[in-house]
Structure formats: structure tokens, C-alpha cells
Lab assay of single mutants.
Amino acid sequence: MSIQHFRVALIPFFAAFCLPVFAHPETLVKVKDAEDQLGARVGYIELDLNSGKILESFRPEERFPMMSTFKVLLCGAVLSRVDAGQEQLGRRIHYSQNDLVEYSPVTEKHLTDGMTVRELCSAAITMSDNTAANLLLTTIGGPKELTAFLHNMGDHVTRLDRWEPELNEAIPNDERDTTMPAAMATTLRKLLTGELLTLASRQQLIDWMEADKVAGPLLRSALPAGWFIADKSGAGERGSRGIIAALGPDGKPSRIVVIYTTGSQATMDERNRQIAEIGASLIKHW
């Protein structure tokens, strides 16, 4: 067993022997301040990774656009098919120029040779490549099948209805392509620590998230040296922004954090800054 596999296998073990965790309302004060600064709703939840206990939450059962955070769930569904012998990570998928959609920095470079399922998941999570996500959605049967996968996990809230990039439209009061912070946090925890996926697939999923290259201005910008984070960000229309993450000190994750916002007129930089400040408060009061 590799060191990384050992780390993920012992996530519940280490967490069980940690000192009790206590909620700190100071972080919620910052979440509410972010709402004021952005002029928009902000949803927040913080779960203990081992027990699933909610440590703090704000608007945990209000719907927010998922945006690209759905790509972690998508690759979880792909990995479940791999575990069941219905898919192979090494299978190569070929596609054409007509398949390319807006923001496809990886797939646009491989029109000639195609990409493997493993490479597509890596591109979808680490670079948020939209064509990679659409190609992977095709392998599982489309958005409705991802929703069905989530329902089978016990998540009857999260739903995907459309493809990239239309799913980022974020129309107010439109339930399409949305989740709730509580539902997303619980589902992410199941994917990373539950028995739904094999140990190898859980490790692969967290490795992809740990290698995320496009979430630097968010929670990662607030992390002290030595902290662990595996995350996936999302951005959408109407001032929408979000991030889902597993993080913790001492090089291992111990909490799940989900943050979503929508309806702001603020710039992307300002949305990023507010999420980073929430992260800084979380870490300060850990």
C-alpha cells in the first residue's frame, strides 16, 4: 500500500482519535458579512469528516447552483462504474471539434489522439474542462443518470439537468442544476469515506481534487503551510461562485467545507476574496 493510499485508508482512524471539535460562531459572522459585502445569498456548511456531524452552517438547506462543483460527483459516478466493471479508466475516447464547448483548455489539445477516461476526469476536476465533463456525462448516460446515481446514494436534493455550459445559467428560483450545502457536503463525505467506492477509487477521487489547479484564489489562499486540501470550485452566471473541499491540518483532511453564493453584482475577484476570507476565519478558529 502506498503512503497516499495509507493516508486515505486511515482518515477515519486518525479522526477518531482527534480531540473533540467545537464550532466557532466567528466564522458564521464572516459568512454573514460576506453576504453584506456581496449583496447576495451565501450558503455555508462545515462537517466533521469522521462523524458527519454538522459543526457550523448557514442557509444549509437553500438551493444554490452547483456550477462546476458537480464534476466531482460526476467522476465519482464514473469511478463507481469502474468498480462495477462497467468502465475502464484506460479506455480512450475520441471526439471532434464539434464536441468542444466553451472553456476546454485540455480537451482542445487532444482532438487528434483523444483522451482516456482517467485523463478526462483529471481534466474535468483539476482544470474544470467543460468538454471533458460533457464527454464523461455521455459515458454514464447524461445528466439524468448522474441525478439517479445521487438518488441511489441517498441524495434526493442534488440534481443535474443540463450539460456544460448551460448548467451554469443560475436563474433565480430555478431548481435545475442545483444542490443544497448540506446535501453536497453529505454526498461528498460519502464519496470520500464511505463504502460506495473502493479504496482505490476513493484515493483516485481525492487525488484529482488535491491536484486542483484553478481554485488557488479561494480556500487555498488562506491555508497555512502543512495543511491538506482537496477541492473543486465552480463559477456561473449572475454572480455565482462555489467551492467544495476536504481539508485539515497535519497533512490530512478532517472536515468537509461547502460554500456557495449566487445573485451578486460583485466582480469575480471580490467573490473570490470573500470566500478566501471565510476560509481564513475557519482556519483561525479551527
Rank of each mutant, 00 (worst) to 15 (best):
L197M: 00
K252A: 01
T147G: 13
F228W: 12
N272E: 03
F228E: 11
E87G: 11
Y260R: 00
A124R: 08
Y95C: 03
R202P: 07
L197W: 14
T187A: 04
H110F: 11
I256C: 15
M180D: 00
K53V: 01
P224F: 12
A276G: 08
P217K: 15
L100N: 09
I229W: 06
E61Y: 08
L89H: 05
A77Y: 02
W286I: 04
I278E: 15
N152G: 07
K144A: 10
T178M: 00
M153K: 14
G154E: 07
E210V: 09
L120I: 06
G90I: 13
A132P: 13
R238N: 02
T179M: 11
H156A: 02
V257M: 01
A280I: 00
A34S: 05
N134F: 12
M67G: 10
S233T: 11
D83H: 03
C121P: 09
V214L: 01
Q265E: 14
H156S: 04
P60N: 11
K232Q: 15
N168V: 06
G76V: 06
A123F: 00
D174M: 02
D177K: 02
T158G: 07
I140S: 11
T198Q: 03
D250V: 07
I54F: 11
S254K: 15
E277M: 14
V157Y: 02
D129L: 11
V258F: 07
E237M: 07
R241Y: 11
S254T: 06
I256P: 12
V72Y: 11
N50W: 08
P224T: 05
S51N: 09
N130K: 01
G43T: 06
Q204C: 08
Y103F: 01
V29N: 06
L137A: 03
A222S: 15
L47D: 02
K213S: 03
G239L: 04
G242Q: 06
R189N: 12
S233N: 04
L196K: 05
T198G: 09
P217L: 06
I278C: 15
L197K: 12
I54K: 07
T107D: 05
S221K: 15
Q265M: 11
E175A: 01
T198R: 08
P60Q: 02
E195V: 03
T193Y: 10
Q97V: 11
E237Y: 12
G242K: 08
M268K: 10
G76T: 06
D231E: 06
L150Y: 06
L111S: 02
E270S: 13
H285I: 07
I93E: 15
V42P: 00
A77N: 12
T27H: 06
V214S: 04
G114R: 09
G216E: 01
R162K: 07
L282S: 11
S254L: 01
I54C: 05
A276S: 05
R92C: 08
L111N: 00
R81W: 01
E108C: 10
